[in-house]
Nucleic acid binder design. Structure first.
Length: 183
DNA sequence: TGCCTGATGTTCT
DNA sequence: GAACATCAGGCAC
């Protein structure tokens, strides 16, 4: 996972087009990452901005691990830890496209609406706090890097759904994907 | 189509 | 006690 030991914004670009393999009850769901946001310790919107806490300690761990946090009382969001150990940087997975095993998803919505939001994709893939700190080299949640995506197909823009540092252009998505979240 | 609001619990100040 | 990296449904236009 050394490719993720880099700046969060660079890692966020690399993660676009990569695959997540989620195994539930022996069934594998494959999803392509189409939208990401990067966060690091210099960023006021990041959980790591105010230093390490019990909640965000995974962010300060080694790259290639999952940081899952609970928000708004009912939703989980999946991040992938990037950068060097102790750096406190991570990439939020905002949206994925299900490319295999859609029938095994734990969410009933159809088509691109299945996983076009950070909380929706966690629901669809059955990701919760049990996955916090999970090594993404191992099942039941694996990250398969794929750097074949052409830079010209990536759009960089400002993040959404946050108040702090909302002007920072740390959101990345695959321009021609239908699964990119609207808000 | 687009804005508003309720649901809900963890975390931090 | 307030903030929060959200979502879905309801309502007005």
């Amino acid at each position: 996972m050394t490719e993720l030991e880099t700046r969060a914004d660079i890692a966020a670009r690399r993660l676009l087009g990569s695959h997540i393999e989620r195994t539930i009850d022996g069934n594998t769901i494959k999803a392509r990452i189409v939208e990401t946001e990067s966060y690091d310790q210099t960023d006021a919107a990041s959980h790591s901005f105010n230093g390490e806490t019990q909640r965000n300690k995974v962010m300060f761990g080694p790259a290639g691990h999952a940081y899952v946090y609970f928000t708004y009382g009912m939703h989980y969001c999946l991040n992938i830890v990037t950068g060097q150990e102790g750096e406190g940087s991570a990439v939020l997975i905002r949206a994925v496209e299900i490319i295999q095993g859609e029938q095994h998803c734990l969410r009933s919505a159809v088509g691109v609406n299945k996983a076009n939001g950070p909380a929706k994709l966690c629901q669809a893939l059955g990701i919760d706090k049990a996955m916090d700190g999970h090594d993404l080299n191992e099942p039941p949640l694996k990250l398969v890097l794929n750097n074949s995506l052409d830079d010209a197909r990536i759009t960089q823009t400002t993040r959404i759904g946050i108040r702090k540092a909302a002007d920072a252009p740390y959101r990345f998505y695959i321009t021609d994907s239908a699964a990119v979240s609207k808000r």
